[in-house]
Amino acid sequence: MAHIAKLGALTDELVALLTSASADGEPAKFNAHKESALRALRNHNYPRTNQFDVWNRLDGLDEKFRVYNEDQLADALKERLQKISRLEGKWSSEILHLLLELSDKPLANSKLKD
């Protein structure tokens, strides 16, 4: 029960941040977003994260950056990935998997100065 409550509270925060809808200002809209998000998070058919697949995708991205002469971008990514391997253990692959799923044409849009 505590787990469901925690998921609910985190989903509330996520919905509020991404949609700018609040539980007080627009309760109907907020609740609709929250219910649909919670349903999608709890009932899905996605397989568990394969850590080898995640690291292969990141290696592929590194190679792509270098092929297109974006060595600085590749080096910056590599440095952060090495840092993460040292710092965080248990959930790194899952968090990197999320970032890869949300990644939008990094070669064209990512700038090192950001």
Binding site: L61, L77, L99, N109
Partner: peptide, 10 residues
């Protein structure tokens, strides 16, 4: 930082 490099917009 990784999210920014991957342009994940978070």
């Amino acid at each position: 930082e990784i999210s920014t490099l991957l342009n994940a917009d978070l």
